[in-house]
Design a protein around this nucleic acid. Structure first.
Lengths: 352, 352
DNA sequence: TTCATCAATGCAAGCGATTGCACATATAAA
DNA sequence: TTTATATGTGCAATCGCTTGCATTGATGAA
């Protein structure tokens, strides 16, 4: 292919201003408003004029300036998506769900990651508000304890839907999982399979998800008449170091755990690896259950039992709720609880 | 917990219009231009006035309207990121690299996925152009063969940097991997380890990355004096079905492959799983090499040899290049080749 | 023929910032 | 004291599009 002609480099430091509706209007000797209406397919414009205008727009290579349009319309057709991190299976699925609905309805999405920093989350909310997104869907950072930044968002009249990690003190629509039940089912499953000394590698309890896990862990152990060793009930930031250290400590105790419930799949994979290094047979000596899923869990040996969360569904639902608020401004504060599934694989099931 | 007080619902269908610089100006009896300058910390405004204005802005809960600002300034401080899919380790890393540099320099990023559809890619480019992003960083879809949409983008004076999957016919800055070398090193490694019948599970050759793999595969086999069985040289869309089918066919042949080079890590993981189901010992009966990496490769047994691509680095570099073009409008058309690393793990190395 | 009605288009005022230029003080230099 | 030079603000146009209202000419009803 030859680009000799087209590749004429434009050296001007300033962008050559592009074609506007005024250019079209001038060429056709009509009013800019007519051009605007025609391009928006208003039915107040005759078909003949529309055709003429559309053709001329095509000819001149006109491209709508959304910035101007947004300013005038007071709506950007953009929705902000705030997630802790982007490289995570669950959030990827949620984003996919959001995007699916959004793009169907003509909305763009602006993704930002908090990297689990409250400070960054605050800043992101300010930016979302400044860019005048039409709405925000967010999953709070682990550090987030207060809601001042959410209240500000609300004050700027930007609808907000929270998912997964939420703050119950803040009034808005929420799409969540029954985290208590997630843990309850996990513990019960392990109990039924004959495991007695169950450890919990949990997240920081400042976050609702993890505090609910923690509560369910204690309560269910009691219900199942299983011992709750305080040192088996860990809440940490779940870094690789945290996990290694926990494993080291646990397996140097007199009574060692025979099952570990891990807050997420990354941690579970690491636990599985470390367990193998300790020559522990899975699931005979040690069971592993992960409270979130990702494909890799099915590729390791043995496959790891995990809780499947409906990420895409959560995304879709959140987006639909948000659209309702955007369109009809009917603020609702109800919380939707999505179903999950405990998928039992070989890491936690054997005949004692 | 009680929500009674906070739940005062605002029923108004219309967003209460927010505070503008004019409101601040009126209250303080100064000109809007003064407010604008003060908030932008212009040094033409006295410190006293600035203080007054900033305080009033704070008091009224003022929040800059970026839309208006963008229209006036003719720049959005937003850069568009176009990737095939979001749920992919490599692209996640690239996005992280981009975001790191971008947020340091005060840029937001707008992420869109093509889902490997050329049609969607075209549409995304139109949107990017309409929203007047200051620049675009893109990795082309597998289907993309033509560059009309890129030329249009260029015509709207939006700088573009391509990474990984590029089109050599299109003039712009590119950040890529030496795909030929990736394959060459993989084949040579397998040859050195004593494998003879190497199969290639490749991607569609319409895409430069995969066609380079394919060429390197043939050439390196020849160089290493190894047989090239045409049926071992596969180019497909790499769906799960494609892979299953390929495996079925290959292992029903008279001469079965003793090594498989898989175009990406998902495929490699699946191959590894299927191989186990066929009771093939890895790496004794079958070696596996993946041409991209993800953490899961280190969790499976045996760990899978793979090519580590510098995703974050690619992202950072692309963003830096883009910023140069945005800032100085110095169009350069050079291609940067980033180093990769073949990490040899247990799936491809044993003592024959 | 006259008046109401309607369809098609134009006029002009926004939207909320930014910015070149003019203008008023104040200060310094002559 | 007069003139040059800063310094700090205000004026008004502008960015490109949207939209309420006015206008025009044509059509149909009275």
């Amino acid at each position: 292919m030859l680009f000799l002609h087209k590749s004429k480099v434009q050296i001007n430091p300033m962008a050559k201003s592009s074609i506007t509706i005024n250019d079209i209007a001038r060429e056709l000797k009509v009013a800019p408003s007519t051009v605007s209406r025609a391009l928006n397919n208003s039915r107040k414009i005759s078909e003949a004029t529309k055709k003429k205008i559309v053709e001329k727009a095509e000819e001149l290579g006109y491209n709508l300036n959304m910035v101007a349009s947004s300013l005038s319309r007071k709506t950007t057709n953009t929705i902000g998506v705030v997630i802790p991190v982007i490289n995570n299976h669950f959030y990827n699925e949620v984003v996919n769900g959001i995007e699916e609905i959004a793009s169907n309805r003509g909305y763009r999405i602006l993704i930002s990651q908090t990297k689990e920093s409250f400070h960054k989350e605050e800043e992101i909310m300010r930016t979302m508000s400044a860019t005048r997104v039409d709405g925000v869907i967010a999953c709070l950072s682990r550090e987030t304890k207060t809601t001042g930044h959410l209240i500000k968002l609300e004050k700027s009249n930007i609808p907000l839907v929270l998912f997964d990690r939420v703050n119950y003190d803040f009034q808005c629509r929420k799409v969540i999982i029954d985290n208590f039940s997630v843990m309850e089912q996990s513990v019960s499953h392990l109990a039924r399979s004959g495991y007695k000394n169950i450890a919990h590698l949990g997240g920081p309890t400042s976050c609702n998800v993890y505090s609910e896990h923690a509560r369910a862990f204690s309560e269910t152990l009691k219900k199942e008449n299983l011992p709750l060793h305080p040192q088996y009930h860990l809440a940490s930031d779940i870094t690789e170091e945290d996990i290694s250290e926990a494993m080291k400590i646990w397996f140097s105790l007199k009574v060692k755990p025979d099952a570990i419930i891990s807050v997420n799949s990354n941690a579970a994979l690491l636990v599985s690896k470390l367990a193998k290094e300790l020559h522990l047979a899975i699931p005979e000596n040690l069971a592993i259950v992960s409270l979130t899923s990702e494909p890799a869990l099915q590729y390791v040996e043995p496959q790891i039992t995990s809780v499947e969360l409906p990420g895409t569904d959560i995304g879709r639902t959140s987006m639909k709720f948000l659209l309702e608020e955007i369109r009809y401004r009917n603020r609702k504060f109800d919380t939707t609880i999505k179903p999950f599934q405990l998928i039992i694989r070989n890491s936690s099931f054997h005949n004692h």
